[in-house]
């Protein structure tokens, strides 16, 4: 089994850095994600969010620093970690020529889901895509695709869910429904969620804590309320714009 004790954080990152040639994409980043919390990663485009998540998922090898997920480290713990986490991004597609059912069936096998049929049916009903099971993913609307990606990400009942802009392609109604489903799943299953989004209202509503990064460095970390108070702003959007335009970063 894994090295997870009640005191072990879901994710522990220490002095994490990543250099691509002359570019320092992530610079000495340290943070912890507690078990069961929704943790937001915020930053402008190119701030290092994707690189950071990629290192947490072993898609990118760090230049320096340590990553622990569920108390385990890559590469030794790769299989144990990845069978207990999952990932969804609006920008990472599933095979478009396969139907919704076929895609979910394949990933259920890859994640070793015990009762794939029941699990898939529960998830598609939850995300209101049951009627599209026999449709090819390529024939779905972008909102439906996003919900299929999210259903895939919940197949293995993950202990940690990595979500990269999960509602970016959804209309406000479907985005809100999706958030509610994610919240209810997270509460029921006690999953930890690491989420990135450019929708500041969504981050404010969903996240227990937020980490602001800029040029790969940690600017500040805290609950949305704490961040607003520290910057003396009314919304996260105002804080984001302030930081993105080079405003003073408060520790």
């Amino acid at each position: 089994m894994d090295a997870l004790t009640p005191a072990t954080p879901a994710v522990r990152v220490r002095g994490l850095s990543k250099r691509f040639g002359a570019t320092l994409a992530v610079d000495d980043l340290s943070f912890e994600i507690r078990r069961g919390e929704i943790y937001g990663l915020l930053g402008a485009n190119g701030a290092g969010k994707t690189t950071t998540i990629s290192m947490l998922l072993d898609l990118v090898t760090p230049t320096a620093g340590e990553v622990e997920v569920l108390g385990l480290r890559y590469p030794k713990g790769r299989e144990a970690i990845l069978s207990r986490v999952n990932f969804s991004s609006t920008y990472v597609s599933l095979p478009l020529r396969l139907t919704v059912w076929e895609n979910l069936r394949v990933f259920a096998a890859l994640y070793g889901v015990k009762d794939p049929k029941a699990c898939i049916h529960e998830l598609v009903e939850r995300f209101e895509i049951g009627h599209a099971m026999k449709k090819k993913v390529g024939d779905l609307s972008s909102g439906q695709k996003t919900r299929v990606y999210l259903a895939k990400a919940l197949l293995n009942d993950p202990a940690i869910l990595f979500l990269d802009e999960p509602t970016a392609s959804l209309d406000p109604d479907m985005a809100d429904k999706t958030r509610q489903v994610l919240l209810s799943v997270q509460r029921e299953r006690g999953a930890t969620v690491l989420i990135t989004s450019h929708n500041m209202a969504e981050m404010e509503a969903l996240c227990d804590r937020i980490l602001f990064i800029d040029k790969g460095r940690k600017l500040m970390e805290g609950s949305p309320r704490q961040i607003l108070d520290r910057y003396g702003r009314a919304t996260l959007e105002e804080v984001f714009i302030h930081v993105a335009r080079g405003g003073e970063a408060l520790a």
Partner: peptide
């Protein structure tokens, strides 16, 4: 190549598939 064309490689590499 099928995984490259369908941009599915990331989904496979973040799964426990070795």
């Amino acid at each position: 190549l099928e995984e490259v064309w369908s941009r599915n490689l990331l989904n496979l590499f973040v799964s426990p598939l070795r």
